[in-house]
Structure formats: C-alpha cells, structure tokens
Nucleic acid binder design. Structure first.
Length: 266
DNA sequence: AGCAGCCTGTCA
DNA sequence: TGACAGGCTGCT
C-alpha cells in the first residue's frame, strides 16, 4: 500500500492540520496496532511531522515521538466518521476537538509511542537507505554492481532506497525499459541513471496525483488519490503496452506480483 | 538471500 | 475455494 508518495501526502496534510494540537485521551481498540506506552502521548503537543521512507515520524513536546507505519492497509485520518468505522484500531483525541484515527483492516500497520524522538529517528533511519532524491547516480550504480539479485528485488529493498514499493518499482522499471528479472550487476551506467530518474519521475507523478488508491489507501482527510488511473504497468495484466503495443504480462519476483512488457523491457 | 508469517477482505 | 493484495520481520 502506501509507498513514499502516499506517506508523503499524508505527512504534508497532517503537518498543515495538526501541528500545535495537543493529544488528549487515547483509546486503543486493538492492541495489535499499538506499541509502547500510550500514556507517553497524552498531554503532548504535536510539534513536527516527518517521514523516513514509508515511516511517519511525529515529533512531540518534551522530546517524545510517535511512529506510524501504514504497511498494507493502514490509514491515518482526521475525518470523524472514522470514530464509528469497523476497522478503526486507535483513536487519539485532540484537546481542541476532533481526533486522529488509525484505521487498518489487515492490522499489519501500527502506531508506536516513544519517550525519545531522537531514539525513534535513529532506530528507523538505521533500517533504511536514502530517498530516491538523496542518492547519486554513482552511488546507486555502485550498489547495483555489487549484487546478483534481480533488479526489482533491489528496488524493493528499503536499505537500498527508502520508500519504493511494488507499484512504483514496477512502473519505474517499465519507464526505464528495463526487465525486472535482470541481475542488478548487469545494469549499465546509462541504464542505472535512467532507472533512478524514472523512479523519481513516477513517484513525482504519484505525489502530484495525491497517491495511488487502487485498493485501500486514503489520505489524511480520508480522500482517494488518482495515481491508480495512471498506472503504466502495475496491475495491468493483459493490457496493451502504450509504448510498443505489446501485451503486459504478470510474473512473480520475490513472491510479489510483477508486471512487465516483454516487447520493450529488455 | 529467500521465504513463511502476520491478518482480513475481495475477486475469479 | 483458492489466489492475491500497496510491507516488513524474523527465521532458516
């Protein structure tokens, strides 16, 4: 679900709407979706809303922190209709009115309370590499050269690039004309450069579209994005490739659905 | 490095 | 009924 563009969309909206608000009572409806001591959050003000890869990292007063990961089906919303929705797992009241709702059907995602924002950031940063905009062509190529894993597997590895998920990995590989099954070490300098540029391009379009709501993603206001109408290959089994007229095929790489046009992804 | 597992819902 | 779903973790 939420990949970098979706999480960044939520981050920007949340920053705009609730910075300065104080968190009141917290209701944990399903303990699977909450980790740590919820008392840490109570009475704390929301000071900043950051993002590291697909992790949302909220800075609170007195140096505390709140980590949110949406995983596959999570939503972090302010829309009060979520108070009575079936899969709302955590309700965090805001003292001035309203609440933050964590909603998640599959319960893979979570909200986690941290005494120390510093520690939270350190721990999360240790799990991921740079954003696609933070890495140079040269460093990216260097990583690819060192492994024989399939290029698509590498794109999904959060230690290599933070924030790339299945949708944007598939679409970026198509845009770059690279077959997802190829060994990363065989990607040439020009191709690596084009691939990195393609990742930035598709994620840029995703962000400008408010994210992809193919399935369950919703933004901070509970609204859908539009990138699902712009998928290049993701999920388009049997559709015609707009570049070469070939047929888009579904294969599996690393247990994940993978879409490829064999006509123009070589 | 690769793969099951986490959990619930939808679609073929 | 079985396959599959935007992700990560922990185990082999």
């Amino acid at each position: 679900m939420p990949e970098l563009p979706e999480v960044e969309t939520v981050r920007r909206q949340m920053e705009k709407e609730v910075v300065g608000e104080e968190i009141g009572k917290i209701e944990i409806r399903d303990s699977m979706c909450f980790d740590g001591d919820s008392e840490i959050l109570v009475g704390r003000k929301i000071e900043k809303v950051g993002r590291v890869g697909k992790w949302l990292l909220v800075g609170l007063s007195e140096g505390a922190g709140m980590e949110v990961h949406l995983r596959m089906t999570g939503r972090l919303v302010v829309d009060d209709k979520y108070r009575s929705m079936p899969h709302t797992r955590v309700v965090m009241e805001l003292v001035s009115g309203g609440a933050l709702y964590y909603w998640d059907t599959r319960k893979f995602g979570y909200v986690r309370a941290w005494e120390s924002e510093k520690e939270m950031t350190k721990v999360v940063k240790a799990k991921v590499g740079p954003d696609p905009w933070e890495i140079s062509d040269k460093v990216f190529l260097g990583i690819l050269k060192k492994t024989n894993r399939k290029i698509k597997d590498i794109l999904l590895d959060q230690k290599v690039l933070a924030g790339v998920g299945n949708i944007y990995a598939n679409d970026a590989l198509w845009l770059a004309g690279i077959n997802p099954e190829r060994s990363a070490s065989e990607i040439g300098e020009d191709e690596a450069k084009l691939l990195l540029q393609s990742i930035r391009e598709v994620m840029g379009v995703g962000l400008a579209s408010g994210g992809a709501s193919d399935n369950t993603y919703r933004d901070f206001y509970g609204k859908s994005g539009n990138y699902q109408n712009k998928f290049l290959v993701y999920g388009r089994t049997g559709a015609k490739c707009v570049r070469c007229g070939g047929v888009i095929e579904r294969i599996v790489i690393g247990g994940r659905g993978t879409w490829v046009c064999r006509g123009c992804q070589v």
